[in-house]
Write a protein that binds this DNA or RNA. Sequence first.
DNA 1: CGGTATTTTCGAGTCAAGCTCAATAAAGGA
DNA 2: TCCTTTATTGAGCTTGACTCGAAAATACCG
Lengths: 242, 242
Amino acid sequence: MAIKTVNPETQRIKLERKERVILEAARAVFVEHGFDGARMQEIARRAGIGEGTIYSYYESKAELMLSVLQQFWDGLTLEAEGVMASVQAPDFFGGLRALAQYHLNTVILNSDFINLTFALRRNNSEVSVSRDHLRHYVAVFDRLFLRGQDRGELRADAILWQARDVFYGSLEYSARSIEMTMEAERSAREQGPVVEDMVALFRSHYGAVQTTEAGDHATVELLSSKLDQLSEKFDALAKRLS
Amino acid sequence: MAIKTVNPETQRIKLERKERVILEAARAVFVEHGFDGARMQEIARRAGIGEGTIYSYYESKAELMLSVLQQFWDGLTLEAEGVMASVQAPDFFGGLRALAQYHLNTVILNSDFINLTFALRRNNSEVSVSRDHLRHYVAVFDRLFLRGQDRGELRADAILWQARDVFYGSLEYSARSIEMTMEAERSAREQGPVVEDMVALFRSHYGAVQTTEAGDHATVELLSSKLDQLSEKFDALAKRLS
DNA sequence: CGGTATTTTCGAGTCAAGCTCAATAAAGGA
DNA sequence: TCCTTTATTGAGCTTGACTCGAAAATACCG
């Protein structure tokens, strides 16, 4: 009977499910022991398959790690987009605060994965993969920033990638610092101030100028030339009077 | 004869020299092939010694790498201090520009070493070592910043470690971005603008509030002096007319 | 269902590299 | 010169990523 004929999708689905199982086991082991500490044998055991089977799905341990990282970054991107969508206040700085909060938290929780993303870069030639995933992730910030510029909340001459570097770079570095000091001295250095300072920094450096006092070079020169003109008129008047 | 008696320092000096030779060879091989790609055999060959000898100086490959990193960061710290000492203009923003330029350049040239510093953290228990060396390195910035605050060039309520995170974090992230885009598209994204933007950012966010925020000091003073001159002329004329 | 072709799984074996250790050489001291 | 101590060595040990031939599972056809 034709009904008995297995749907051609079935096998593919089964393979995909097994791939997911491998990926899940790999992720757990990598998180638990790091890249070098992870044993392929343990990954196979946790996935309930033979060690050799992994190699019919992934070329090498590094490629497996890369797939895990891929999945990881995709997850982050989705989460970040979710955070941005759920922000009530639709203004730039509100969005920035939410994104900064989310990112800082994420980076602290998954610092090992973040590091591995860059540590693996040199060895493997398939660099472009992780590069694309980074790009997708930071695109969340890019959209927020460009919308802020469109709305006039940000200076029109602000350069996107410089702002992006400041945003992600500072938060990443802060996360490392927090992690370090947290271990030793459980001192100050909370997350809150870091996020607030980031918002304040964007407000003062990239925020649109409210009054003329923060005017750009052009306005200053305009004033200067007007003063010069006035001074000349004054001199002319004084000469006539004398 | 007593003269023949070897100075007790001799052996220690010889050992130290050999240690330096090993470190030098190791550094070269690590730079050339990365941590995983480096072969202990090759390091031994380049140092002109047997492979086993390395292990009477260093416990493991990781510890050897750690020593190389230590030497590396110490070198950076010295260089950074040298750069700061050789800056003619003793003002904060001049110093910041020089330090940013140096750091960005350094991070681009030695990105693999920088990454390894953080990648090794998780595995080895001797974390504190590299942490101290990082601390020494960033202390160069700390001194500059505190002096700037003392002189009133910077806001008194600015928080040191937040500024530090922004400075080093942004530059490190920029370096990675530059490196990435450089490989693919040899597009814009030069180093110059990054450094200048960093200085401008510090001026607007951490700089002491002047009468005007933007516009550099010189232009503002120019306007001020012109107004003063005009005022004097006016007074003179008024006195003559009365 | 039976037989055959194809695909998938497997784990024992290979290989490479970090590391050990017993033997050897060098240095120091009397 | 002989003995003690220290330094050096490289042949193996160990471990872990990866291979491969065989076997099990699956698909295909009459």
